[in-house]
Design a protein around this nucleic acid. Structure first.
Length: 884
RNA sequence: GGGCGGUUAGCUCAGUCGGUUAGAGCACCUGCUUUACACGCAGGGGGUCAUAGGUUCGAGUCCUAUACCGCCCACCA
């Protein structure tokens, strides 16, 4: 250990000089890996695996810090603590990143082919994972790197295939033609969650469809006129009087001249548009359902690149939006466009590339989710899982209770390949391991489904696939279910909900006890940070500039569960300043301790009142922060520790200790100074691991405390002795009040800095206990104070008599300044002020001045007058007190 | 259309079970080369807790409306 510590502490804390050193030390010692102890209940967090799409951002830093706080705290409490790190292959998001890199070389993934593309993906993964790992390490995360996982590792991949096969065998995975969300840019289907709706100002086109029998028109309203090329019916509400007679008749669909029926369907709203709706089963989820009910044909009019296909007749080959214009133009020229109304509606966009989504009926793989949702709903309702903050219960339940089947197949090249093989004989084989021959016809010509699974399909298994599932490993037995799932609220549905469903399905019990949802970090203006907007704050830069502990302080302080926060540089400065404050407090202690060993047995000597006070306060802080941390109120707990260390330990206890050091006869404050510092450092360690370790090691080593090898495995503080010590707190509060009052008075009366003020304090039975602090008061308040129980007789003339909460303070004014000189000075100043007022009044009474001078100048003189009048009043009051 | 959150000092935010005089950081003003720290010390100014009602001995906190800001969900074309 000796070589780890510099002998002389520099004047300011230099974060980057100590951080790397301690992280390496912790790693070498193997502190991050828990020991399985069947007698103890473990504390477990599975880290939300960052996407391998680039650098870590502040959101990751927040996640990592919150989890590290919990993990370090529980580890110090002696619980076997596992924090399991990993990374997510991130399906579409990562594929987009590499496709962009390819595009810079003028290539597309199609040009290089699936195999080469996958190779490129793996190259990217290897670089990116190493990078993410290093960035996490800089943040100080104490996770168990020996158990690090990647979603595409063999273990988790087998878990994915196993889960797929089991669900398929239970009939909960099926393949079918349904309306899916198609992204033309990504060329894949997406789940409903991956579509982001955004209001777009558009139009409602009213189209005239001629009745086949030549007797007028039915007018339909649509926001996507080009889809009329795929219409296979018109629907009206059977209760709608306007359309009573037309149900069962046919219309001639313009442009295509197909004859399609008019059907009655109760789902049609009579209030919206014209009450008649065109039915396009291939391109609208509603219409798809209507089509099923009425047995309508499904005519898909779009190619994968969302150009119109051969079903669109002469519009074939046109882009969807060009086709829209062309269709409208042609309808207009044939008199079949009734009108165009402005209309704002929500349009779906691809979450990853912002391309407008097209609903298309396609054959895809789906999870029948309602049976999985049912126990997941129950788990939250019966509080097997507690979601924090509580309000997200409602959000969760509302989504789960209205959940729709989940489209899990993606037409991508990056991800877990769907474990399904097809044989030319028509057989479909669903298996965990690749089949060699067709079980039906023994053919070896098997073709695997080309699609991959939604990336969240594997993420959902993460709580148990990382622990060895489907094998019943010792890790799985011991660490499942995990304790806390800590993540941002924006992936409640994507991830948390699915983990709950899959965890219960596979393990028969929920995957975690608590869900703690944190908010998003925004920039100084409150805007969401993003690389494209250029307002993203890079956590690495911040750590470089302010230190890791300062960054951790900045992102934790002032936050509350589930609420967004803003990060400004002032917060980072506050964190850095706090680290430096601690650093110097420790320097003070170490300086006075010298090189000799110090006892921290605070019961060895008779404690002074301030000793009892600081220990009582420390105990209260331990008790309060313990409750707060159990409630996940880390921002508040950090503030309490900060305020104690700065506002009580440094401002008062250290200041009081100075007089004890200078007084040979006084008892040494060192045992308590060291005890409280050691305890506070341990209390703070989960929040600011580096500076606390560095200082604790100095204390431990230099003072020969024998506390252990590292603060991170030292015990988390617990209350010692009786608490609170109200008697001691009362005395010290009185002392503090006296100091504040004298300082206020000094400032108010503009007493010169060095002048020693005389005062008497009448404090009842506390007087005797306060007396020993007379020397301290001379330093802290620059006042020579005589203590007595109570005042006998009147307050002497020309004295201030100040009644405080717990005592009375009398200050003869002649001790603050030379009375006669002060009276003279006041008289002179009063005369000056009076003549100034006279002059100003005359000036302002002069009509020619007020009339001709610029308004601003007049105003200025008026302000000067009122200020001088106020000053004169104050001088008069002062004078009255002096001559009373 | 449904749901949620926010509104507290100039700024960013805390505020626990409803309980004395509503807090912090930053900014601002005044004064300090006090031998741990100027990344500091001491002192100071600054609040109708969005608005209107209500419950209560007592409301920033609970209830009911309203306004503004933000977010989530949603297949009326």
């Amino acid at each position: 250990m000796t070589d780890q510590l510099t002998t002389e502490l520099p004047k300011a804390y230099e974060a980057h000089q100590v951080e790397r050193k301690w992280y390496d030390y912790w790693m070498q010692q193997g502190y991050f890996t828990p020991k399985i102890d069947p007698a103890k209940k473990p504390f477990v967090i599975i880290q939300p695996p960052p996407n391998i799409t680039g650098d870590l951002h502040l959101g990751h830093a927040l996640t990592a810090t919150l989890e590290d706080i919990m993990v370090r705290w529980h580890r110090m409490m002696g619980e076997p603590t596992l924090w399991l790190p990993g990374e997510d292959h991130a399906g579409i998001a990562a594929q987009v990143v590499v496709e962009r890199a390819l595009a810079k070389e003028g290539l597309t993934r199609q040009q290089i082919g699936r195999e080469k593309f996958t190779e490129r993906m793996w190259q990217w993964v290897n670089g990116c994972r190493a990078n993410i790992g290093n960035q996490h390490k800089r943040l100080g995360v104490s996770c168990d790197w020996t158990r690090e996982c990647f979603t595409l590792d063999p273990g988790p991949s087998r878990a994915v295939r196993t889960f797929f096969v089991r669900l398929y065998e239970k009939g909960l995975i099926y393949r079918g033609e349904r309306i899916i969300n198609w992204c033309a840019r990504c060329s894949t289907a997406l789940s409903d969650l991956e579509v982001e709706h955004e209001d777009v100002a558009s139009h409602l086109w009213h189209l005239k469809y001629p009745l086949e029998d030549g007797d007028g028109f039915v007018i339909v309203a649509t926001t996507r006129p080009e889809t009329m090329l795929g219409d296979t019916a018109v629907a009206v509400n059977p209760a709608d009087e306007r359309y009573k007679g037309v149900i069962g008749k046919n219309v001639r669909l313009p442009l295509t001249e197909r004859v399609i029926p008019i059907v009655g369907d109760a789902s049609v709203s009579m209030e919206f548009g014209t009450g008649a709706v065109k039915v396009t089963p291939a391109h609208d989820p509603n219409d798809f359902e209507t089509g099923m009910r009425h047995n309508l044909p499904i005519i898909n009019i779009l190619n994968n690149d969302v150009t119109i296909n051969e079903n669109g007749g002469k519009f074939a080959g046109m882009d969807r939006f060009a086709a829209r214009e062309a269709v409208v133009a042609e309808l207009e020229s044939t008199g079949l466009l009734e009108k165009i109304e402005p209309h704002t509606h929500a349009v779906g966009h691809c979450q990853r590339c912002r391309t407008i989504i097209e609903p298309i009926a396609r054959r895809q793989w789906f999870v029948k989710i309602a049976p999985l949702a049912e126990p997941a709903i129950a788990a939250v309702k019966d509080s097997s899982i507690t979601i924090l903050p509580e309000r997200f219960n409602k959000v969760y339940l509302n989504w789960m209770e209205n959940i729709r089947d989940w489209c899990i197949s993606r037409q991508l090249w990056w991800g877990h390949r769907i474990p399904v093989w097809y044989c030319a004989c028509g057989e479909t084989i669903v298996a965990v391991d690749e089949p060699k021959v067709c079980p039906k016809c023994a053919s070896e010509q098997l073709r695997q489904d080309p699609d991959v699974l939604d990336t969240w399909f594997s993420s959902g298994l993460w709580t148990h696939s990382t622990l060895g599932w489907p094998d019943n490993t010792p890790d799985l037995q011991y660490f499942y279910p995990t304790t806390v799932m800590e993540t941002a609220y924006d992936i409640l549905f994507f991830w948390v909900a699915r983990m709950i469903m899959m965890g219960i399905e596979n393990m028969q019990q929920p995957p975690f006890r608590y869900v703690y949802l944190h908010g998003l970090i925004r920039d100084e203006k409150g805007e969401k940070m993003s690389k494209t907007k250029g307002n993203a704050i890079d956590p690495l830069e911040m750590m470089q500039k302010y230190g890791t502990d300062a960054l951790r302080f900045a992102i934790i302080s002032g936050i509350t569960p589930g609420n967004d926060s803003k990060l400004a540089s002032t917060k980072l400065e506050a964190g850095r300043n706090f680290a430096n404050k601690l650093w110097n407090a420790a320097r003070f202690v170490l300086h006075y301790a010298g090189d000799s060993a110090v006892s921290t047995d605070i019961n060895a000597a008779v404690p002074t009142i301030e000793d009892r006070w600081i220990i009582s306060r420390l105990n209260t802080v331990i008790a309060d922060t313990s409750v707060m941390m159990q409630r996940f109120e880390f921002g508040e707990a950090l503030r309490v520790i900060h305020d104690f260390l700065w506002g009580e330990y440094c401002d008062w206890y250290i200041e009081l200790s100075k007089t004890r050091f200078s007084d040979q006869s006084a008892s040494s404050p060192l045992p308590v100074l060291v005890f409280v510092l050691d305890t506070s450092l341990r209390l703070l360690h989960p929040y600011m691991p580096f500076v606390t370790e560095e200082l604790w090691q100095h204390l431990n080593k230099k003072l020969g405390l024998g506390l252990g090898d590292s603060i991170m495995v030292a015990p988390y503080p617990e209350i010692t002795g009786q608490s609170p010590d109200t008697a001691a707190e009362g005395i010290i509060n009185t002392l503090i009040e006296i100091v504040h009052t004298v300082r206020n008075t000094r400032a108010e009366y503009e007493v010169e800095q060095g002048r020693l003020i005389d005062a008497s304090v009448y404090a009842g039975e506390r007087a005797a206990l306060l007396k020993p602090y007379a020397a301290a008061l001379e330093t802290l308040a620059k006042a020579k104070i005589a203590f007595a129980e109570k005042r006998d007789g009147e307050v002497p003339p020309q004295s201030l008599d100040i009644v405080l909460q717990s005592c009375e303070l009398v200050i003869p004014m002649e001790s603050m300044f030379d009375l006669r000189a002060e009276v003279e000075r006041i008289a002179k100043e009063m005369a000056q002020a009076a003549s100034e007022i006279e002059r100003l009044e005359a000036l302002l009474g002069d009509e020619s001045f007020c009339g001709k001078a610029p308004a601003a100048v007049v105003q200025k003189q008026r302000e000067k007058l009122s200020a001088t009048c106020e000053r004169l009043e104050r001088l008069k009051e002062h004078n009255a007190r002096l001559t009373a």
